[in-house]
């Protein structure tokens, strides 16, 4: 049985990745997960300069999900390269760095720095960040904004470039096509859905930022629909995510056209879920007499 998949030049032993922001730098989960059984780890969003993130409270539990407003807290690309990379570069799985920025120049600068790292075979570009120079509107909400940042990063980055799409758009297919056109090797979706929670007794929003990103099982039907739409519209691989908690959930994304999946919020509920999902996909293939994981896809 062959579970391996390929995205650009990135070879994964199986289609299961952990999603950025839910798995730290991997080492946090060392007691719970055998990394050699994962396709890869997408590490915490990294920006050019250190960021303190948003004030507390940053999290609200909602029905079958959670809202977060962490605000890309991280110590910056230089710190990552000097202090974190040496500790994770030999983990027995593929390490993908999620990259965020508030200007095209920032994205390009981080991509160039990461291009030099031997053991980072791919980056995932988070284009849901606000473009400070364009009045704070997110890059990823228009085909023009998405194209601009992907074009610039593509010219600066030689390895596998995955672009993570925002679901908070009118037509996600047009964004996916725009980034494919600019040379993205794959798209991953969905990022969190913009939401809000209010404490009725205290009569105020729960999150310090008022709004935040919704994730968890609550978003799965929306994510499946978007993955299905995008997979039909582009010829590059699609990485599906949004509420995956089990191998069955993951298989549904593969059926909808995804080449691989990312596990996010479920890591908080079961810290070893990613490994179980990988095992469960193999069981599913055995039950259905499938040779290769791509046989699952029905599109």
């Amino acid at each position: 049985m062959d579970l391996s998949v390929k995205i650009g030049t990135l070879q994964l032993r199986n289609p299961v990745l952990t999603a950025s922001g839910t798995f730290g730098y991997g080492t946090e989960y060392a007691d719970f997960v055998d990394f050699s059984r994962l396709g890869g780890i997408v590490v915490k969003g990294t920006t050019l300069h250190p960021r303190e993130g948003n004030p507390y409270p940053r999290m609200a539990e909602t029905p079958s999900g959670m809202l977060n407003a962490v605000g890309l807290q991280n110590k910056g690309a230089r710190y990552f390269i000097d202090h974190i990379y040496p500790a994770i570069c030999h983990l027995p799985t593929k390490i993908i760095v999620n990259v965020s920025g508030s200007s095209i120049d920032d994205y390009v600068a981080v991509a160039r720095m990461l291009d030099e790292l031997e053991h980072i075979p791919a980056i995932e570009l988070n284009i849901s960040c606000p473009n400070v120079k364009q009045g704070g509107m997110a890059f990823g909400v228009t085909p023009y904004g998405a194209s601009s940042v992907v074009r610039a990063v593509r010219n600066a980055y030689s390895k596998t470039l995955i672009v993570k799409l925002s679901p908070n758009v009118t037509d996600i297919v047009s964004i996916a096509r725009a980034v494919e056109e600019e040379g993205a090797d794959g798209v991953s979706l969905i990022n969190t859905l913009l939401g809000m929670a209010i404490d009725a007794e205290r009569r105020r929003p729960i999150l310090s930022t008022v709004t935040g990103g919704l994730s968890g099982p609550a978003v799965k039907p929306v994510a499946l629909r978007m993955v299905w739409q995008v997979a039909q519209a582009v010829s590059i691989p699609v990485i599906g995510m949004g509420g995956i908690c089990s191998a069955t959930d993951a298989v549904e994304f593969l059926l909808a056209g995804a080449t691989a999946v990312e596990i996010g919020t479920a890591n908080f509920v079961d810290p070893s879920v990613s490994e179980k999902v990988a095992d469960g996909i193999a069981d599913y293939m055995a039950r259905h007499n499938m040779e290769h994981v791509s046989d699952i896809t029905m599109l």
Binding site: E28, N68, Q73
Partner: peptide, 17 residues
Amino acid sequence: ENRMACGIGACLCCVED
């Protein structure tokens, strides 16, 4: 006892300034 999710320092939700 800040509101937390992961419990192991991965999600960065329960921060204290």
